[in-house]
Amino acid sequence: MSNTSQSRHSMHLTLLVWRQEGPHKPGSLEKFTAKNVSEDMSFLEMLDFVNEDIIKSGKRPIEFDSDCREGICGCCGVVINGQPHGPDRATATCQLHMRTFKDGDTIVIEPLRAKAFPIIKDLVVDRGALDRVMSAGGFVSVKTGPHADANAILIPKPIADLAMDAAACIGCGACVAACPNASAALFTSAKISQLALLPQGKPEAARRVTGMVEQMDKEGFGNCTNIGECRAACPKEVSIDFIAKMKREYFKAMFAPMESAAGDGGA
């Protein structure tokens, strides 16, 4: 970075970052100053940049999660000034640019908070609960055999599009973090709908919705009260219409005959 571009676009920020040594340790906000932050940095690059100074001074760097850094893996996610993934809509933390902030700003950075997401360290939380919800039915059981013909099963374009909208969920957990009740309804409903909409997912639909809702409840998430903060925070703008679909799927499952679990001898 040249000096001129630094002086032209750089800013000085105050960070209040949640520091916590481990899952059952007490945590608190710690103050850092971030000097010469370029407006072209992503939010995570800014944290990397601050961490370099912290490491140089011999202290423990700020821990946070990231992987793809292009908004597709769902690994990143912190709560920035009270908003999961920061102030921009349809943006993951890794896609958030520092130009969203102004010189002199104070930024409060907290982890995604929910009982179901225990803090591992600082801003890193364990989102295994979402994986366990998936394991409870978020899949399609298929016979693995020769490669099937593409388009052997016709799917109308609007249905395919809708399933794709649900499948856009990257499982980052921002919905849980944004929900006043820490509910995982948006995540769970997106995964249920994505499969329930498609012919391949229909045979197991009743068992899937039953299992996934049951697991969601077991993980200690709160309940949906239809407030919709999840939709606003979702980096993929997954709609709460899928929550309505989950309700319909559940209602159907209450009355539909349910095929028995895979592996116990068939229907």
């Binding site: 000034n81 009982k115 709160g222 309940n223 903060e229 606003a232």
Partner: peptide
């Protein structure tokens, strides 16, 4: 159940607006 679901509160909470139905009434 909600009360137990987030034992540690945020120090700052801000709605992202948009299609959220977060109102004094709904909360």
């Amino acid at each position: 159940n909600h009360w137990g679901a987030r034992p540690e509160r945020y120090s700052v909470v801000k709605s992202k607006g948009g299609e959220s139905k977060s109102t004094l009434a709904s909360r």
